[in-house]
Design a protein around this nucleic acid. Structure first.
Lengths: 304, 304
DNA sequence: CACGTCCATGTAGCTAGTCTAAATAATTCA
DNA sequence: TGAATTATTTAGACTAGCTACATGGACGTG
């Protein structure tokens, strides 16, 4: 009963093809195939079965892969333990983020990391990418979900909440509502909206506003890039839901943010990880820094 | 970070010497020494240090060995899971017992085990042996402790309670107390006692009786073998504390058992195991059979 | 429908890691 | 001091697992 082989099975469960596993583990597909065959012979029952030109796991294979995760976790814990023993939170950690979270958190995090710990960051368009799938490639995946609703649960991934960010209504300077302390759904009847990317829980909140206000809202445009959206709002072409900490609201000459009362308008920013990777000391250190930075961002906004 | 090497470290923690580990793992001491050296180099800090002609683990070594146990447990769980998948509770399970528990439980257990599951039993004198140490050699160690007091805790072993057996006062037929339903400590003043082996919590209960009755008790003999003790009691040479389910009490012409009231007089029979071995499907199956048998023994005695 | 592509697997040979065997060093016990 | 016990070192053998290459289905496409 070899751990290496179990690990390969787990990778197969995550990546779906021998070739992908081989690529990820720096081996030839032949080597992977051979090892899985040995595992299957040891197990005494088929773990994979052909499906088209690829293959899929059998029920037994999936079950075994699941417990392989537990093995990987306890192994990672052992490694982390002795890294702690040596006070040695070094190594490389890879991270993907969607743009706004990266802009808000990463610079501060990287500044606060000790020497020997390198954080390799990348960004992915939240519209296009399947966040859970990215955990195969990256140690940490920054994702967001609507408040409460944990869309990431149930796949065996570790989810660490980092912060909740309010989504405010962005208005142009001089807008009739601009001198209010906050706005309510009913205030927003008749406005033209600039839609944001699918990555934000925009649709949900828009529908909630419609339901609350009892009227239909019209959407003029739909953009992914926040700066683009802001420029439209500033130009008076509509209003938009923008994340409070990431927008340029508050700066002179830019747009004005108003909290939305009466409905819950926020997004959860979380870190998604494979359970075993979450145990690595270096990863946990980065996670701590992320949480600290998130707290600081929130704090600096409430004080202001 | 190799599991095999971690396993070796764990064995070293359990067995205390390279030679013992080598013997247990069917290797030469040289191989073990080399592997541990590699592990130590990977770890980056000393895991062992010389002590006389042998060696002892450092703090780091012990810590690492502990987490190695977790790894072994999750691995054993994986193996068990797929054994369940195949409905395959087969293999060999080794067990040591002290004589009375073996006599009471093992015949029934072995009868009820399915084919393909072999249970290799041995017995050890409870006086001479260190029960926890036996878990290195045997999958299951049947041990006993005084009620409540879990003397086996804290060593990282899995403890599964099997039954609690009352310790009754054994009297010769025709003894003045023989027609009573039960006896109390004060009834026993002036009697001569036949001491049982240290394996039973004899001393404790004897002291409790003395304290309760407020008098000193005299002990005539001290034997380990229950049959021998019984023969002395039957011959009228004294009375003794005997385990209710194991003695021959109740059979015609033998001795008479009387429950002891006023103090707690019983022993706990438990199974001791290394955590990883406790996860094996075959071991769990044997354990289930042990519990069932224990229940049946208790039941057959309460009905009668 | 034949061709190129993609994916898994089989075969042969090489390499690296792990074992044994025997010698060495250090310590304890008699 | 000599015998016994224990860990370690070294050299050499063995073997598990890898790569390179070839094979054989399955899919899509001109």
């Amino acid at each position: 009963m070899d751990v290496q082989r179990l690990e390969l099975l787990r990778e197969l469960a995550d990546r779906g093809s021998i070739t992908a596993v081989a690529l990820a583990t720096h081996r030839t597909p032949s080597a992977v195939s051979q090892q899985l065959k040995v595992l299957e012979r040891e197990a005494g029952l088929p773990l994979t079965q052909r499906h088209g030109r690829g293959l899929v796991l059998t029920d037994a294979g999936r079950a075994l892969a699941r417990s392989a995760t537990d093995v990987a976790v306890s192994l990672a814990k052992a490694t982390a333990l002795w890294d702690e023993f040596r006070n040695n939170a070094t190594g490389e950690v890879s991270l993907v983020t969607f743009p706004t979270a990266g802009q808000m958190l990463l610079p501060g995090v990287i500044k606060n990391l000790g020497p020997g710990l390198v954080l390799n960051c990348a960004d992915e368009d939240p519209e296009l990418s399947d966040f859970p799938a990215l955990t195969a490639e990256y140690d940490i995946v920054l994702a967001h979900s609507m408040s409460g609703q944990l869309s990431w649960a149930g796949r065996g991934l570790t989810v660490v909440p980092l912060m909740t960010e309010p989504l405010d209504v962005g208005l142009p300077v001089g807008h009739p509502l601009a001198d209010r302390a906050w706005v309510r759904p009913s205030d927003l009847i008749g406005e033209t909206w600039i839609g944001v990317s699918d990555g934000y829980p925009f649709e949900r909140i828009l529908h909630a506003i419609e339901q609350e206000a009892g009227a239909h809202l019209s959407m003029a445009q739909r953009f992914a890039d926040l700066a683009l959206i802001e420029s439209f709002v500033i130009a008076g072409l509509g209003i938009a839901l923008v994340p409070r900490y990431t927008s340029s609201g508050g700066q002179p000459g830019r747009l004005v943010l108003k909290p939305l009362r009466g409905i819950e308008s926020q997004r959860q920013i979380v870190a998604l990880m494979r359970p075993d990777r979450a145990e690595r000391l270096a990863v946990r250190t980065v996670l701590d820094a992320l949480r600290a930075q998130a707290l600081q961002v929130q704090h600096s906004h409430t004080v202001k």
